[in-house]
């Protein structure tokens, strides 16, 4: 089963625990400016939206990389190989979603790699706005919610 980060902004409170967890996992310290997941605070609309790489099937970043430093693993995750990355940033331009970013401190790009299959952001989220589950069932919860609102009608005898 391929798993993915399922993000529900409706549950997000904007606390940034995901950014703290991500940065600690990846950088070994709390440094949210290096987090691979970002929470956007649309204060005037009262909306908080976590956003990160969705691990596209045919990934623009992977296609664009001139030195093949981005590859897809068995779980569909796009990984950056730091030993190959030359810091040209073409992938950051290619990504339509902005989720691949350059890290000036290392001269390489950074992006979400799902922490090797156990993402720290999902574990840290206090409201389940970010969960790691079956990529094919990402709509399950929303479907269930809307299904529960449909008019049940009257069950007729069969």
């Amino acid at each position: 089963m391929q798993k993915a980060l399922i993000i529900d902004p409706g549950k997000c409170t904007g606390c940034k625990q995901c950014e703290l967890a991500c940065s600690f996992e990846k950088e070994g310290s709390f440094n949210i400016s290096k987090s691979r997941i970002r929470v956007f605070d649309f204060h005037h609309d009262a909306r908080y939206v976590p956003y990160t790489c969705t691990q596209c099937d045919e990934a623009w970043c992977e296609q664009a990389c001139p030195v093949n430093a981005i590859t897809t693993d068995a779980n569909g995750v796009k990984n950056v190989h730091e030993n190959l990355c030359v810091g040209c940033k073409v992938c950051t331009i290619a990504c339509p979603f902005g989720t691949v970013n350059y890290n000036a401190a290392t001269g390489k790009v950074i992006k979400c790699d799902l922490c090797g299959g156990d993402p720290a952001c999902a574990k840290a989220c206090p409201t389940s706005a970010i969960v790691f589950s079956d990529a094919e069932q990402s709509g399950f919860e929303k479907m269930e919610k809307w299904a529960s609102k449909t008019d049940p009608g009257t069950q007729t005898a069969h």
Partner: peptide, 19 residues
């Protein structure tokens, strides 16, 4: 009330966001 909002790192999120 539109949403409850958290401050940095807060897992309670008591903040009220209103319109």
């Amino acid at each position: 009330l539109l949403a409850n909002a958290a401050c940095f790192g807060c897992t309670i999120a008591c903040g009220r966001i209103s319109k």
